[in-house]
Each structure stands twice: as structure tokens, then as C-alpha cells.
Nucleic acid binder design. Structure first.
Length: 286
DNA sequence: CGTGCCCCCTGTCAGC
DNA sequence: TGCTGACAGGGGGCAC
């Protein structure tokens, strides 16, 4: 479900209302969502105060002022997996809340922050400063940061023979790109999804850099892509689905009206969508 | 080390 | 109507 634009949208919806709130109690209907013992998770988070909500790649990063003075700055990292989401429930909200609650953070005064996840592929982890830094360093650059440049992208591509679609999905290489935006960016840059990363020309890697940034920014502006169950923190769908040009469009005419038809190709167990006329297969692949 | 494949889990939809 | 299989936004582990 959620890639960078969806995580960013949820972050924006949560940051202001959460700031300063204290976690009164943690309830864990689905302990398998935690990477730590639930007792340890609970003891770290209960009583802590939300300072801010950040994001790293597809992960939400909740900055917490801890109760324990030894490591006063905790970060709770939430990976949303395929179907995870975060909802802020107000005390006067008489709805039943999300249908698949996984971890519930009761807040001081009123209301609750709820992590919900039908498929339960998501994970929540609490890090101290040191461990967080190590975790973050293992991820690739943020594609919307100024440090991510056409030349840094070209450098990264040059060292790998991976198909470019797989390369883009690898969070150690770039953080935050998932299957939807990888395919959309490759269409934008007219690169076949199976092209080996190290065979992408300098021109094409500049085009890919540009397409990635443009598509991710546009998708954030649209509050993400809702195909089925993704919702913002406010429960509303994102609208970028109507801007998709290849993802999920197998058999439909190419958005460029080139006369081609969008095709679906499966590799690494994931579907890839592309226009065979705009994104010709590199000759030696066959 | 890099890469591809399977699996985790639940829900939805197409086809019969 | 109901069954079955394919497929879904992610990523860890394992074999090669």
C-alpha cells in the first residue's frame, strides 16, 4: 500500500495534532506487529510525549520524549507494510474506529492513535538514538532531498546489474520508492523496467531522476494513490490513482497516444507495467 | 556479495 | 450462490 507519498501524507496529518500529546496507555491486540517484546515496547512508550512526526523512506518516525532519563529521545519507527495505516481517533468520535486495530496508543486527556493493518505485514520498532541512527544509515538516500542528484543516481546505477525496476524497489539504494511509483517513473523516463541498472545512459539517468522527483512530488500533492484501502490520517482517499499512466493499466492504450498498449510483465514476483513502444526492451535482453 | 524466489496474511475479484 | 485461484501498495530469509 503505502510508498513515500502515502507515508508523507499520513505524517502531515498526524504531526500537528500529536505534538505534545502524552501516551497514557498502550494496548496491543496484535503483538506480532512488534519487533520487540510487547512488555518492553509498552514500558518504553507509555508515559512518553510526542515531539514530532518525521519520515524516512516509507517509514513514519515518531519522535518521543521518553520517561527514562538515560536515553531521553526515542523514535518509534512504523513500517506500514502493504495495508498498514494510522488513524487519530478523537474521544468524541463515536465511530467504531478501524476494523483491524493492531496497536492502540491511548492519549492523555482524550482520544487515541491507532495503528491498523489488515494483512499485518507492517512493523513497529522503538529505537534509542544510537540504534535509530544505525537503522537510518542502512537505508538509501531520500529521493526528494537535495543530496539526491542526477550524478548520485548515476553513480548508484553504475554498480548494479539488477533490472532497474528491482533496483528502484531496493530500499538500501533509494528509500521510499515502491512498485507503483517505480513503474510510473520508468514510464516517465521511457526506460524499460528490465533494463540492467548499469546499462542506463547518462541522459536516461538524468531523465529518471527528474521523473522520480516530479512523480513523487505530484503524488504527495494528490495525497497519495488509493487503489483499495489506503487512507490519509483523516480517513480520506488520495487522488493520484487517476494520474497513473501505466500502473494497473494492462491492455489499455498508452497515455502518450503512441499507438502502443500497456503490457504487464511479472518478475521478482511483482507486476511491472510499461508501454512497449515508449519503453523499448534493450536489444540484448530478448 | 548480489540477485531472484518464496513466504508471511487477509481481502477482493474474475471465472466457472 | 459459492468455490477456486490469481493478485495486491512490502520486505525478510534463504539458496545459488
Amino acid at each position: 500500500m503505502p510508498e513515500l507519498p502515502e507515508a508523507e501524507t499520513i505524517r502531515r496529518g498526524l504531526a500537528a495534532p500529536l505534538r505534545g500529546r502524552v501516551v497514557r496507555r498502550v494496548r496491543i491486540p496484535r503483538p506480532d506487529l512488534l519487533t520487540q517484546e510487547s512488555d518492553r515496547f509498552t514500558s518504553l512508550v507509555e508515559g512518553a510525549r510526542f515531539l514530532d512526526v518525521g519520515r524516512r523512506g516509507k517509514n513514519l518516525v515518531f519522535e518521543l520524549a521518553a520517561v527514562d532519563e538515560n536515553d531521553p529521545h526515542l523514535r518509534m519507527v512504523v513500517n506500514l507494510g502493504m495495508s498498514g495505516g494510522m488513524t487519530l481517533l478523537r474521544a468524541d468520535d463515536d465511530s467504531t474506529g478501524p476494523s483491524h486495530p493492531g496497536v492502540v496508543f491511548d492519549l492523555d486527556g482524550e482520544g487515541a492513535l491507532i495503528y491498523h493493518d489488515v494483512r499485518r505485514f507492517g512493523r513497529l520498532t522503538v529505537f534509542g538514538s544510537r540504534a535509530f541512527s544505525n537503522w537510518s544509515q542502512a537505508l538509501g538516500p531520500e529521493p526528494l532531498d537535495s543530496s539526491f542528484t542526477p550524478s548520485s543516481l548515476a553513480d548508484g546505477l553504475s554498480g548494479s546489474r539488477s533490472p532497474i525496476r528491482s533496483w528502484l524497489l531496493d530500499q538500501k539504494r533509494i528509500a521510499g520508492v515502491g512498485n507503483i511509483y517505480a513503474n510510473e517513473a520508468l514510464f516517465g523516463a521511457r526506460i524499460h523496467p528490465r533494463t540492467p541498472a548499469n546499462r542506463i545512459s547518462a541522459d536516461d539517468s538524468r531523465g529518471l531522476h527528474h521523473a522520480l522527483q516530479r512523480i513523487l512530488r505530484d503524488a504527495i500533492r494528490a495525497r497519495g494513490t488509493t487503489l483499495q484501502d489506503y487512507r490519509t490520517a483523516l480517513g480520506t482517499p488520495g487522488s493520484y490513482a487517476s494520474d497513473l499512466r501505466v500502473y494497473g493499466r494492462e491492455g489499455r492504450p498508452c497515455a502518450r497516444r503512441c499507438g502502443g498498449t500497456v503490457e504487464r510483465l511479472v518478475f521478482s514476483n511483482r507486476s511491472s507495467f510499461f508501454c512497449p513502444r515508449c519503453q523499448p526492451e534493450p536489444s540484448s535482453l530478448n
